[in-house]
Amino acid sequence: MGRRRAQSAVETMLLVPVLLVVMVATYQLFTLTFAAQNAHLRAREHVLHGGAYLQGRAYRTSGSTVFDEGARDYRKAAPGAFRFESTSSDRSIPGVGTAGEEVTARAVITSE
């Protein structure tokens, strides 16, 4: 009887770490996915609207945009081939054994 109780304890001891690892992995995966989605959405916002809606946030954006920051207005469509490209980076939440993965997304508006 006593040996069987010990058996349950051993099983629990074995399972709990595995369960914890899987849960932590799932959480980290969630934060990574969230960061990726955030990066894609912010890149799209930046290439279309510049920094008009993106100020003061943790993520980073850069690149050319159809929004003229100086004039605070959308660019007149100038002749010729065009290419506007923005990138946005976000980082997943640091977790066990990781400092957080940086995800960079790109949004492009191009004629060719």
């Binding site: 279309l48 159809v66 065009f82 508006i109």
Partner: peptide
């Protein structure tokens, strides 16, 4: 889809 539509509209604006 958004950016493709925008690119086409930009070209039409040109």
């Amino acid at each position: 889809a958004d950016l493709a539509a925008y690119a086409a509209a930009y070209r039409e604006a040109q």
